[in-house]
Structures are given as C-alpha cells and as structure tokens.
Design a protein around this nucleic acid. Structure first.
Lengths: 325, 325
DNA sequence: CAAGTGCTTTGACAATTGTCAGGCCGTAGT
DNA sequence: ACTACGGCCTGACAATTGTCAAAGCACTTG
C-alpha cells in the first residue's frame, strides 16, 4: 500500500496550488467541503484551512455588483438633478453615524477601481474619508495608473496624513505614487512661495495639474471640522471665511454656496492643488456622508467639481430635498 | 404598540433595497444571518432568502483573483518561453477531460473582462471553447466595447453557432455586437466573392479588420475535429491540408507548424476574417486545453497570433516540454 | 365578502461550515 | 542521537447556514 506523501503535496499539486485547487472547487464548481476533502485526499478540516488561507491571501474576491448601487432610484435622481455622470448610493443600514461613514468609504473603495483606466492620473485629497477609502480597498492590479497627492502634508492629531492617503491608495491599486513633500500650510507666504519654486516641489505640483481624475470629500465649515482640527485653519480664520460666505471646503480651499473659490489669507501660505485645476476633469469623485455634509456637497457640485458621487440613502435624500426646496 | 408593516417594507427600506442591505451586512460587515435578521426585524430564514435572491440576481460577485493564475510558475514560464504578454494557467483538478475543458472556459470567462478597455473592438472566433467561455461569463458592464463575429455562420450539429458565440459574449459584456450575416463556407468560390462584395456583408467584414483584440481557440487537424464535424471541411479536404503540412486551425484557416497560413481550395469559398488581420493585435487570446491541442497551440503561437494564453497545468507543461525538446 | 391566488415569511429540522486542542512529522540546534 | 520547535493536519464538537412545508398577508375574483 503506497503511503500518501503528506506535507502539502498531493500528486502533482504542491504547496499553494492545493489551496487554489480547493478554492476553485468550492467557489466555481460548487462542491462542498466534504466532497473537496475526498477529492484532495485530506480531512475536511484541512479544506477549511485551505479556504481560509485563500481568503486571507486575497485569492478570493467577493463584491457586490456596482450596478446595484448606481442604478438605485436615488442614484438616478442624483444624476438627473445634479447632472453628474454616475452616483453610487449605499443603504443607510441600522448602525450609527460611524457605521454609515464606514459603509460609504467601503462603497467608494469598491467602486473606484472600476472607474480607473490605464493612463489615468488620479489626484487624491486628504481627510478621514479619503483615508478610510484607501484602507477599505482590496488589492487590485491596475495598469499604468499614477496617484498624486493633491495637498501638502500636515502633522495631525489624527493617525493619518495626506501622504498616507495617497501612498496607501497607490499601493492598493498597484499604481505609481507621486507624493508632495511639503507641508500643506506654512506660517509665512513668502516661504511658501519659495518652497513652491523649489525644483523638486515645483515638479510635484506640476504633476498635479496633469491629473485627469480626482477623489475628494466635502469638508464642512464648522468649528469641529477637520479643517480646524488638523491645524490647517484657526478658529478665527474659519470665522472670517464663513463671513465671506464659505459653505464648504475642498482640497483645503474654501468655497461658497455656488462652489466659487473664496480667496483669502490662507491661500498664499498653502501648498496644494488649486481649485481651478479640478474643473473639467474626466472624473471628480465626491465621497461624503452625513447631514452636515449636505451643504458642502451641494456647493462642490454647483461649482462643477463633481462628476461622480458616493454617499448613502439618507444623505442623497437630504441633498435632493434641499436642492428642490 | 405599532404594528410592523410587512410586505417587504421595513422602515425606509423597501423592496429590493432590503435584499441589498442584507447582502451588504453579510458580505461586507461580516454579520451572521442571525444578527442580520435581528437588525432587519425578520426571521433568519428570510435573510437566507434575501441572500439567495441577491446571488440569483447577480448582486454578489465571487471571483478568484486573476493574479493567482497569471503569476503561477507555469504561467511565468509560458510568458518567458513563448514571449506572450500574459498567461492564465488553471489547476487540472481531479475531474475528467470534460471537467478540465470547462475549467479553462470558466477561467477565460473570469479573465476576459479585465483584459478589455473602453474603445476596444473584440473579434470572437467560433468553436465549442469560445461558446463555453461566453456561457461561463458573468454579466459585467463594460463601456464602449464592440464585439465582432470573426467567421461566418454554419448550420452545425452542435447546439451553437458563430452568431451565438459572439452574441452571447456581447450580451454578457454589455457590449455592442456586429454579426456576420453570411455562411462560413459556400459551395462556390464565385458566389462567395459576390457575397463578400454585398454592401451589408462588406461592411461587416470591414469591421473585422478594425478589431484590436481577439479571442479564439486552436483547432486540431484530426478527423474528429470540429473543422470536419461542423461541415467546414470534408475528410478529403482535411487530408489535403495535412499533406501540405497543416498542424492546426485558427478561425477556420489552416496553419503549419510555424503558424504560416496554408492557402487552399477552401479559402476562396470562406467568409470570415483573414489570418493576417489577426497579426499585431493588442491582444490575441488563445484559449485551449488538451494534449491534442498542444501542437495547434504551438503553431498559433509561432505564427505570432497569440499575446495571451488560457490553459491548464497539464497542457502548459506539455507545451513547454515540447517547445524545449 | 368569502374564496382563491400568488407572493413572502416562518419555525423546525437537516446539512454544512467553523473551531480548537492535540497529534504528527520534518528541521534545527545541542 | 536527542530534544525542542513550528508548521500542518485531524477528529470531535460547536456554530452557522440551507431546506421545506405550512402559514400569513394583500390583492383579485366570483
């Protein structure tokens, strides 16, 4: 009686292959674990282990078809009312605000890869939403995609920075990454100007101008917003912008209710993409959720920065209500 | 106590949405069915039904990451030895020849959508393999892809025809479809010529010349091959071509061991793409499996028609063995 | 307005899948 | 050669998931 060799080598199949074999049988041939165990000559528990390994190593990809979210009634209404190319609207679920936030991030993470094509240059903004989108993305292999960091970095009390947003997103997409090696905001306009003219920074900023797609979130103009929390603007600066009619923040710049850029003291000290560079892109992907984001989102849309939206039922409904009021 | 309305309407969530909600919770938030049932306020059995509905309606997409098959040792060797851009090599499994055949079809079906881009024009050959690939494909939504039928139709004893191959593939891809409304082979060269010059046919044939990608299988030159079975060539014709050195069939045309086109009596009577149109494409996807296909596959590759290969371990090994011999 | 129809939902049971402690075996270090 | 270590596998048990007949509900029909 031939002794069956153990140590992960069944016949010709060795090492990792047996894991793939099991995964294929399970997911594509609809065999149950018992049957697979018989065919492979191992115990069923081992098959369970193989399948788990396949999951952990990312061999298995489970996703919900994007059309489910892009053809939803609210998604269609967003398209019609705001004239955007496509919208991805997620169910609210039964969780709290945090849960809804994470869902939207996850939704954007699922959708984004299918919106990219070879040759694209994707500008990536900064913020908790953008960060969570990057984190929620599976590893995918895009070809010939470049990711650019749209705004400078800043030391933040949060665990993420603008470089991390862009770097993680590039890594998940298997894309090249161009970071912006400069602070987002400096104390002195003259220093900012000099830095912008530094060859290495100038080159990176120049790269931003050639992005054809971008992903960003809408920031609100309240005192608990990231714009203050991150140290980008002080309370008094925020008040000043609000007095000028600011209703939202996009890539670190303030905009009014029609999406017009509100120039101010901060701009000269900032290093990052200028808003007019975000107009007329092939894709401007706005990812935001929450009642407090409705006004900023509408502003960004009116400003023409947005071609694609990811949000949830509640926020989409509120946007439509407000737009019709 | 408020009576909960039934009939698929829990709160704001109505109809189909609750199915999506359940699917999201299950697949993205890793809640178990019991928990989901609690949150949605239905019985667990109902959640099972929702999830099944989601599967049936194609909301849920489960796939094995292509890199698992394209980075396999044998795939790498195929790339190196034959100079193709990429190869997708499936495990042989424990099934019979038929099972291996279906696996390769399924593999090609999984891979193909990710090889297409907006603007592509995909030429589709004819044969059982191409048919099964089309059948095995999930519905996906490509943008701006056109599918063209590469060879004319024929009345076959098999349940599939060239139009069905291309039409199904186009349907699965959500692509436009250009069929070739003519028989693949006629009894009289003169009639074939006149038909080729018919405006409507000429236009369709012209479309073929503008394909930038193609999918085809390698046909063998044995008497049990489809080339005979389908009535494309008679036994004596086949013998004649073999005597001229034919080792394989590609899109209805015979090629020798170096992949050179073997002109013959049949060609004048055929309506379909000419082989030189398949040279220099962005993608020539060869999908075949089986020991009897090794020789034809090698011929097609040497002829320069192939940039991408889908096959299985056994066939890949045999190809490499033979190429090195 | 009772009965019929076609759907969804449900509880109880069956089948499948996941977990985990312990065993096996090859390897490395002493 | 002995022993310790670590990865891999397994059996037995626990948890989760799938099935199905029966019931519920809205809507239509006679």
């Amino acid at each position: 009686m031939a002794v069956v060799t153990r140590r992960r080598a069944v016949g010709q199949i060795s090492g990792e292959s047996i894991v793939i074999e099991a995964a294929w049988m399970y997911y594509h041939e609809n065999l149950n674990q018992t049957k697979i165990a018989q065919l492979l000559g191992v115990s069923r528990a081992t098959v369970v282990n193989y399948l788990q390994e396949a999951k952990e190593r990312g061999f298995i990809r489970i996703s919900l078809a994007p059309r489910v979210f892009t053809t939803h009634r609210l998604a269609q209404e967003l398209r019609e009312v705001f004239g955007v190319k496509a919208a991805y609207v997620l169910p609210d679920g039964t969780g709290d605000e945090e849960a809804r936030f994470m869902r939207v991030a996850r939704g954007a993470a699922e959708w984004l890869p299918s919106l990219l094509q070879p040759g694209d240059r994707l500008g990536v903004s900064w913020g908790r939403m953008v960060y969570e989108v990057a984190e929620a993305m599976d590893l995918t292999q895009t070809t010939d995609v470049t990711v650019s960091q749209l705004v400078g970095s800043m030391a933040t009390p949060y665990g993420f920075t603008a470089e991390i947003c862009s770097a993680h997103m590039a890594q998940r997409l298997g894309a090249r990454c161009i970071n912006l090696h400069a602070p987002a905001v400096l104390s002195d306009p003259e220093l900012a100007e000099r830095l912008r003219n530094e060859p290495i920074i100038a080159e990176q900023i120049d790269a931003l101008s050639h992005c054809n797609k971008a992903i960003f979130a809408a920031g609100s103009c309240t005192h608990d917003s990231h714009i203050v929390g991150s140290g980008l603007a002080s309370h008094s600066e925020l008040d000043w912008y609000v007095a000028q009619g600011a209703t939202g923040v996009l890539c670190g710049r303030f905009i009014d209710d029609q999406g017009r850029f509100i120039p101010g003291d901060l701009d000269d000290r900032m290093i990052g993409v200028e808003l007019d560079k975000l107009l007329g892109l092939d894709m401007g992907l706005l990812v935001s959720v929450g009642d407090d984001k409705v006004e900023p989102m509408l502003s960004a849309i009116r400003g023409g920065y947005v071609t694609h939206i990811v949000t949830n039922y509640g926020t989409a409904s509120a946007m439509l209500r407000q737009a019709r009021a």
